[in-house]
Amino acid sequence: MALITTSDKTFTLQQDETLLEGLERTGHEVEYQCRSGYCGSCRLRLLSGQVSYPEQPLAFIAPEEILPCCCKVETDLHVVCHLRSDTPEHNPDLFENDLFPAGQN
């Protein structure tokens, strides 16, 4: 299983999970339409690592770009992708720690 590093987080891609599914699962902001490599709206900038494509996608991709919907992750990756603004990592709960612990007055 590959280690995926994004602009905000590192996670392990699960077996049989597409990169797009892994990014969604971990709270990343990724645009997509087709999930098949036709539209190209999910394209991300690849900083390091290797992917392959079981079938050549119809969408144009530059040499430093990948389509997370249909690529096969071959090595650990580093991509430019950010967490959604509504994820807990981006908006920590200000009241996560009890402000008034029991026994203290």
Rank of each mutant, 00 (worst) to 15 (best):
E31T: 10
G103S: 15
V79G: 03
P68I: 02
P101T: 03
T87A: 15
P63S: 13
E96P: 04
L94H: 07
P101S: 09
S52G: 09
E64G: 12
I61N: 03
H28L: 06
I4G: 04
H78R: 11
T87L: 02
R84L: 10
N97T: 15
T18A: 01
E89D: 13
L58Y: 10
T75C: 03
R35I: 00
A102F: 15
L3Q: 13
Q15S: 15
E74K: 11
E65C: 03
Q33F: 09
L58Q: 12
H82F: 09
L44P: 03
L19C: 05
K72R: 13
Q50S: 10
L13P: 02
V30K: 01
T26W: 12
L67H: 00
M1L: 10
A2S: 14
F95K: 10
Q50Y: 10
T75Q: 05
H78T: 09
T5M: 11
I61K: 09
T75P: 08
E17R: 03
T87N: 11
L47W: 03
T75S: 13
E21Q: 15
E24C: 07
I61C: 01
V30N: 01
P63R: 12
A2C: 06
A102N: 13
A2Q: 07
E21R: 03
D76C: 11
T26M: 13
E21G: 08
L77R: 04
S52N: 05
C42M: 04
E64I: 05
